[in-house]
Nucleic acid binder design. Structure first.
Length: 602
RNA sequence: GCGCCAGUAGCUCAGUGGAUUAGAGCGUCGCCCUGCGGAGGCGAAGGUCGCAGGUUCGAGUCCUGCCUGGCGCGCCA
C-alpha cells in the first residue's frame, strides 16, 4: 500500500510546536484505512495520497477527505472493475473510531465522522477538544501558530535591493513588505531566515550617483564660501532629485571643503564611501519607518575587491561556460533550457556587466554560505532575468530548485480617484517615506499585502486614511483594540485576567458551547495551516484575509456572547475572558506577522 | 513576432495543485442599540468564473486555440 505524502516528522522538534491538527487527522484516516484492510473490510488496493481538505460548507464538517473517491477511481483505472466509493468510505469511517479513549490524543480531536455525497468523509472536531485548545493557545503565546515545516533549514530572503542612489520609490514599498512578511512567515514556520539587501555599489548607476552628489557638493561649497571653484553640473543621465542637495549638505558638514581641493576624478573616487554611507543610512531609516529591517547589507563591490568575480569568470571560461566573441565575454546561457540568447559578462570595453557580479553573488550565497534555499523578491520587469539565473545555477552546479524568484507586479497609487506618481513637495517620484507619512505604516503594509503578488495593485491612499468600514485595515485593528478594551474593563471590574492559564479553569472552559464561541476557536486553529500555506505558495497576502476572518469571528462572539454583565455567571464570564485573551493572542500574532502594530486603543 | 502574468458579483479582490450548493469586503436593500468601543452584528438580492473546444464520473482550477490588458525580449540595471 502506498503511503506517499506522509513525511516522517523530524526528531528535533522545536518546543511549543506540535503536529498540526490537520496532519493528525490525516494520520488518523491513514490508520483507519490500514485498520480496515487488516480487518478485511477493505480489499487490498492502491490507496492514493490522503489529502485532507477544508470544506466550503460548514455543514460538511471541519475537515473532509476524498480518499474513497480517489481510491475507487484508481481501482477502476487499473482493473476496469466497478467499485462503489461510498462502500470504501464506509469501511474507513467504521474504523475511524471517533470515541477512542486509548489516550493517544489523536482521536480526541475528532468529534464525529460521517459519510456524505458520492463518498466524502466529513470530519468534525469535538467540542471538548476545541475547548481545550484555549489554554493551548494561551500557552503558545506570541509563538502561537509556529510550525516546524522548515526543520531548521537555512533560507535567505533577499529583497528590496534597490540601487543605492536615493530614497526608495513607492513601488519598492511592495517589495519591502512582501519580502519582510515572507521572512516573518518563514521564521514562524521553523526556518532559519536571513534577511539581505544586495547593495549595487559598483555599477554605472552608483557611479552616476556619486558624480551627481559631487556636483551638488561643489555647489554647496561655493554657496557656503562664495569662492570661485570648478564648475559642477550634475551629469545629464545622473540623478537630479532634490534629496541630493541634502546628501551634499551632510558631506559638507562632515568633511568641509576638502574634496574641493582635489582633482574632480580623485574627489569623486574618494567620495564613494561617504556617499554610500549616507544613502544607505537614509534607505535604512526609510525602511525602518515601514518596519522593515535587514540582517545584512551585502556589497556588490566587495565581490570585485576580493577578486571573486575574476576567479569565477576564469573558472567558467575553463569549463566552457563563458566564451569570447566580438571582443566581449559571454556567458553561454543558450545551452540551458529556457534561454535562447547568451549574456555579456565583460563588455568589449573591458567593463563587467551587472550580470557578472550577479553570478559571483549567487555563488557566494549557495556555495560559500550554503543557504539551503534563497528567495529573491523581484519586480516583474526583471522577469527576463529569471531563466538566466536558472542557467547560472546549473553552470555553478547548484540545484536550480534552491533559487526561488518571487515576482511581484507593479503598484499604482491612487489619490482622490486619480493616479499619482510624483511628489508635489520634491517634484521627484513619490517615495516610500512620503507614502508612509501620508497613510501610516500599518495601512501601507496591509494594503500592499492584500493582493496576490502576481497581480498589480491599485493602492487607494485616500481610502487608507479614512476611518470607516470601507477601510479594511481599521476593521482589523479596531477588532484588536476592542478585545484589549474588554480585557481592561474586566480588570477594572475585579475580574482576574491571568497571564498564564490557571490550572483550575478546565471546568469553566466546558461552558464555552455557544456556536459563536466554538466558531471563534475553530478559526484561531487555522493559524498553523495559514502559515504553512503562505510559505508553500509564497503568498503572504493570505494573512490579510485570515486576519479579517479572525476579526469577524471575534466580533460575532462579542456581539452574541456577553462577558461583563450581571446576568452572566462568574464561571462563564471567566471562560469568555480566557477565550478573549486567546483571541487577542491570535489576532496579535497575525498582525505581527504582517509587520503591523497591535493597537490597544484607537 | 516570441515569452511571462492577469481576466471570478456593480466595485476591490480571495478561491488551499480537480471534488459535496463558487466566497469575502465595499456598495444596494432589510432587520438589531434601557448591554462590555455601532469604526459593530444578523440577513437578502447580485456571478454563462474573458470566449470556444478538449481531458475527466466530476473543471474557476488541467490541456489546446483565440480575445483583451500589463510586462519582458540591450555589450542597461
Amino acid at each position: 500500500m502506498q503511503r506517499a505524502g506522509v513525511r516522517p516528522y523530524a526528531a528535533r522538534r522545536r518546543s511549543g510546536t506540535s503536529i498540526m491538527i490537520r496532519d493528525q487527522i490525516r494520520q488518523a484516516v491513514i490508520d483507519a484505512v490500514a485498520a480496515a484492510q487488516a480487518a478485511g473490510d477493505l480489499p487490498e488496493m492502491d490507496i492514493p495520497q490522503v489529502e485532507i481538505q477544508r470544506p466550503n460548507q460548514p455543514e460538511h464538517g471541519d475537515y473532509s477527505s476524498n480518499v474513497a473517491l480517489l481510491a475507487a477511481s484508481a481501482v477502476r483505472k487499473s482493473t476496469g472493475g466497478k467499485v462503489n466509493p461510498r462502500q470504501i468510505a464506509q469501511s474507513i469511517v467504521d474504523h475511524l473510531a471517533p470515541n477512542d479513549s486509548s489516550g493517544n490524543g489523536r482521536a480526541d480531536a475528532i468529534g464525529s465522522v460521517e459519510l456524505a455525497g458520492p463518498g466524502f468523509i466529513n470530519i468534525r472536531l469535538g467540542e471538548r477538544w476545541l475547548q481545550d485548545q484555549v489554554p493551548a493557545i494561551l500557552a503558545a503565546g506570541a509563538d502561537f501558530g509556529a510550525i516546524d515545516k522548515g526543520e531548521g533549514e537555512r533560507w535567505q530572503v533577499e529583497y528590496v535591493s534597490a540601487n543605492p542612489t536615493g530614497p526608495l520609490h513607492y513601488g519598492g514599498g511592495r517589495n519591502a513588505v512582501l519580502g519582510d512578511t515572507l521572512a516573518n512567515l518563514l521564521d514562524a514556520a521553523g526556518y532559519e531566515v536571513q534577511r539581505e539587501f544586495y547593495v549595487n555599489d559598483s555599477g554605472t548607476q552608483f557611479q552616476l550617483f556619486i558624480e551627481s552628489l559631487y556636483a551638488c557638493y561643489v555647489q554647496r561649497c561655493q554657496q557656503e564660501s562664495e569662492a570661485a571653484g570648478p564648475s559642477a553640473e550634475v551629469p545629464e543621465d545622473g540623478y537630479h532629485g532634490a534629496y541630493l542637495h541634502d546628501y551634499a549638505g551632510i558631506v559638507w558638514e562632515r568633511e568641509g571643503d576638502r574634496y574641493l581641493k582635489m582633482e574632480r576624478d580623485a574627489a569623486v573616487a574618494s567620495m564613494r564611501d561617504i556617499g554610500r554611507e549616507i544613502v544607505l543610512h537614509d534607505l535604512e531609516d526609510e525602511l525602518q519607518e515601514l518596519g522593515v529591517s535587514f540582517d545584512r547589507w551585502f556589497s556588490e563591490r566587495s565581490l570585485y575587491d576580493e577578486g571573486l568575480v575574476d576567479t569565477l569568470l576564469k573558472q567558467l571560461a575553463a569549463d566552457g561556460e563563458v566564451i569570447e566573441r566580438d571582443g566581449a565575454h559571454w556567458f553561454v546561457a543558450s545551452k540551458y533550457p529556457g534561454n535562447e540568447k547568451d549574456e555579456v559578462v565583460i563588455r568589449s570595453s573591458g567593463a563587467p556587466t551587472y550580470f557578472a557580479s550577479d553570478i559571483a553573488y549567487h555563488y557566494d550565497k549557495f556555495v560559500r554560505r550554503k543557504f539551503d534555499r534563497v528567495i529573491n523578491v523581484w519586480a516583474v520587469d526583471h522577469q527576463g532575468h529569471v531563466p538566466r539565473m536558472g542557467a547560472v545555477m546549473r553552470a555553478l552546479d547548484v540545484d536550480p530548485e534552491r533559487l526561488v524568484i518571487l515576482l511581484y507586479n507593479l503598484v499604482k497609487l491612487i489619490r482622490d480617484g486619480s493616479e499619482v506618481k510624483m511628489s508635489k513637495r520634491s517634484g521627484d517620484l513619490l517615495t516610500v517615506r512620503e507614502v508612509v507619512e501620508e497613510v501610516g505604516p500599518d495601512a501601507v503594509r496591509f494594503m500592499l499585502l492584500t493582493t496576490s503578488p502576481e497581480r498589480s495593485v491599485d493602492f487607494d491612499m485616500s481610502l487608507a486614511v479614512q476611518r470607516k468600514n470601507e477601510n479594511r485595515v481599521y476593521y482589523v485593528q479596531y477588532g484588536h483594540a476592542r478585545i484589549c478594551s474588554l480585557l481592561q474593563k474586566a480588570a477594572q471590574n475585579g475580574y482576574e485576567i491571568p497571564e498564564a492559564m490557571p490550572g483550575d479553569a478546565a471546568d469553566a472552559l466546558s461552558l464555552l458551547t455557544h456556536p459563536a464561541e466554538l466558531t471563534l476557536i475553530r478559526k484561531m486553529l487555522e493559524m498553523e495551516e495559514q502559515i504553512e500555506l503562505a510559505v508553500e505558495r509564497l503568498s503572504p497576502h493570505n494573512l490579510t484575509y485570515f486576519a479579517e476572518d479572525l476579526t469577524k469571528a471575534f466580533s460575532a462572539f462579542y456581539e452574541n456572547c456577553q462577558v461583563l454583565h450581571s446576568d452572566v455567571p462568574p464561571e462563564l464570564a471567566r471562560a469568555r475572558l480566557l477565550l478573549s485573551l486567546a483571541a487577542r493572542t491570535a489576532l496579535s500574532r497575525v498582525l505581527r506577522l504582517m509587520g503591523m502594530t497591535t493597537p490597544e486603543t484607537m
